[in-house]
């Protein structure tokens, strides 16, 4: 017999079903912490030692900040972008590849709830990685943060945006190669050209102009403002661009899930 129990409490948005998907996504990456959390610490530690400690003393200060402090927000952003994207794209790809996405698609969760569930999983991994890098910076260099709230906001917003991009790429991807193309040929150059290791003011005018079109430049700029209180360009515009990216790609991912694009036949 069908009873009210079966339908009544299960129709609301963002209920237990959504939270279960978020929990699943967090469990997944926490069970793989050696791949999902520790690498950021190692690579950022190496960047701080090699670029900061050894080369930093020759570069001196940038905008009254020591070079080693200057690069830490960028390193945190690099970790956030890589890990939030990796989490949702690989989770999507895996669930498609092993077909267990069907177990989730047949549930009463809406396209918005499903996409947001995957996005929040990537967001949490991105934020955790960002916090770990900042904590490592503090441990190794005594780096301090100017605004905790703004820093957390940036970690969340940027992580959200790249996790949403990861969901979309994961939906499109037909092999692991497609995901690697994004990481290696798009994000990596954009991160390095976005001013992780230098101020945009150090570039020739032509490249400075080109950098304005790199969204990661704005994110790194905003993060540097939140942590060190220094900036190359408008911090407000940086925040608006980061939020816009998060919103646009979340809507796109949700639309794709709702329509079943590439995940339903």
């Amino acid at each position: 017999m069908i009873t009210d129990h079966h339908v009544s409490k299960k129709i609301f948005m963002f209920n237990i079903g959504f939270l279960t998907l978020v929990k699943r996504e967090i469990w997944r990456f926490m069970s793989l912490y050696k791949q999902t959390l520790l690498p950021s610490l190692i690579s950022s530690g190496l960047y701080i030692m090699v670029f900061g400690q050894s080369l930093g003393s020759r570069i001196g200060t940038i905008k009254e900040s020591s070079y080693i402090d200057y690069i830490i927000p960028g390193l945190a952003m690099m970790a956030v972008i890589n890990h939030s994207f990796q989490n949702s794209s690989s989770s999507m790809m895996q669930s498609k590849f092993l077909r267990f996405i069907e177990d989730i698609l047949v549930t009463p969760l809406s396209g918005l709830e499903l996409s947001t569930g995957y996005i929040v999983g990537g967001l949490v991994r991105g934020v955790l990685n960002g916090i770990l890098v900042l904590a490592l910076g503090w441990l190794l260099t005594g780096f301090t943060i100017s605004s905790w709230w703004l820093t957390l906001l940036y970690l969340i917003v940027v992580s959200w945006g790249f996790s949403a991009i990861g969901v979309i790429v994961g939906i499109f991807a037909e092999s692991w190669d497609h995901i690697a193309v994004f990481t290696n040929f798009i994000f990596m150059p954009l991160i390095f050209l976005g001013g992780v290791f230098y101020s945009i003011d150090m570039l020739p005018p032509f490249w400075r102009g080109i950098s304005q079109f790199n969204p990661l430049y704005w994110m790194i700029n905003g993060m540097r403002y939140a942590t060190l209180g220094i900036y190359d360009t408008s911090p407000l515009l940086s925040l608006l661009i980061s939020v816009a990216i998060a919103v646009i790609f979340t809507i796109t991912a949700s639309f794709m899930f709702s329509k079943g694009y590439k995940i339903k036949t």
């Binding site: 079903g17 998907l21 929990k23 092993l98 267990f100 989730i104």
Partner: peptide, 18 residues
């Protein structure tokens, strides 16, 4: 789903349904 044991797998599946 390769990440979870059977009891966790079924518990999660129930969770998706509220």
């Amino acid at each position: 789903d390769p990440f979870f044991t059977l009891d966790d797998l079924l518990t999660l599946q129930g969770g998706y349904y509220g």
